Computed example of a mutant assay.
Amino acid sequence: MKNYRLTPWDTKSLGFKTAELLDLDNLDTEQQLIEVLNMVEKLLIKQSVIFVYTRIKAQNIIAKKILQEKGYYFAESSISVVKNKVQKFTPYKCPNIDFVDFEDQYMNNLKEIARDSFDYSRFHEDPNITENSARNRYYNWIDDLINQNQDVKVAKKGNKIIGFSIQETNMDNNKSKLILAGCAKGREIFVKSLWNEILIYNKYRGVSSIETMISSANVGVFNVYNYFDFKVENTFFGFHKLFKKQSIL
């Protein structure tokens, strides 16, 4: 099991080399966790990584303890939510919007919406990361998701692009993971319309359940998911660490 990955997409946006720790919740004992962290940190430092981050389940007392003892600081909290029985979803009455396939001509619009309209993320909520860097990360993330051939849909009202959704769908088990979705700034009135269309689309495709991860601080979007009967599965705490004692503000 590899317990880390380099994250060049974040390196590009933040301007310093980054990495993510993986699967810490699968380590059973305090000693295992210490040994893995010591090993991985040596490897990352050799690769000139400056900034590392991870998420653990909120119930993982051992990891919370060891991470803080190793110099990691608490930066953000997120929750995983899921909606089952998508095939039984009955659409709500919402303002009408068009929900269309992505085209290359929409790329800049999606990148600008992601940069300007999304205010919560593992980096937005880290006081050591500038807002500009966090927004730049979302802007560049769209490129990566398009290149990964994810399922991208665009929400339009007339000729105006008002939002989008990007998901990963596994038709082997009829499950979807909603990676990123939202409306443009000033178009929040269509938020429920967008999620209504997301669910209609997944129902049409034969999807049985949809899951996603959202910031615990984003009360507005949590209420949207609650409105559409998504249930909380788990809470995660995000811990970050700077290997070099320097400001990244």
Rank of each mutant, 00 (worst) to 15 (best):
V224C: 03
R55H: 15
I62E: 05
E211K: 12
R122S: 03
K65H: 12
V81I: 15
Y92C: 11
V154A: 14
I142Q: 07
D172H: 13
I200L: 10
L14M: 11
L43I: 12
T11E: 06
E30C: 00
T11I: 01
V219A: 09
Y139H: 15
E41K: 08
S133C: 07
E211P: 01
Q31V: 00
H124Y: 04
K83V: 05
N132L: 06
R137K: 14
I214M: 03
D151T: 08
Y73Q: 02
P95W: 08
L242W: 06
G206V: 05
K231Y: 11
D151L: 05
Y72N: 00
Q32L: 05
T11M: 01
L21K: 00
S121I: 05
T7R: 15
N140C: 09
V152W: 04
L27K: 09
N38V: 11
D119Y: 13
N174H: 13
N128R: 12
C94Y: 10
I162K: 07
I179H: 02
T7L: 15
V36T: 03
N202K: 14
V232H: 02
L145M: 15
N159M: 09
Q59N: 11
N159K: 11
N108S: 12
Y92K: 15
K241C: 03
F123R: 01
Y201N: 15
N132I: 04
L33Y: 00
L22P: 00
Q105I: 09
S133W: 06
N174C: 13
T212L: 14
N226L: 08
S48R: 15
F118A: 07
F99S: 08
N234H: 03
G163L: 14
K203L: 09
K156I: 05
T29M: 02
W9D: 10
L110Q: 08
G15D: 02
T29L: 03
S247E: 06
F16G: 00
L22T: 01
V100G: 04
V191T: 14
K42F: 02
V224T: 09
A184E: 15
Y72G: 00
V81W: 07
F230D: 00
K57P: 04
L44P: 02
V224I: 12
V82T: 14
R122V: 04
D98L: 10
K85D: 06
K70F: 14
N109W: 04
N170G: 05
G238N: 09
I45Y: 02
C94F: 11
Y73R: 07
K244P: 05
K17S: 06
L37A: 00
I162D: 00
T235P: 00
Q150M: 13
A19I: 06
L180D: 03
G206T: 06
L178I: 11
A184D: 15
N149M: 05
V82N: 13
K42V: 11
I200A: 04
K83S: 03
N170I: 05
G220A: 13
A75S: 14
N173P: 03
R137G: 04
D101F: 10
I248D: 02
I142M: 11
I129D: 01
A217Q: 13
L44M: 10
E112F: 06
L6W: 05
N3I: 02
W141R: 15
F16H: 08
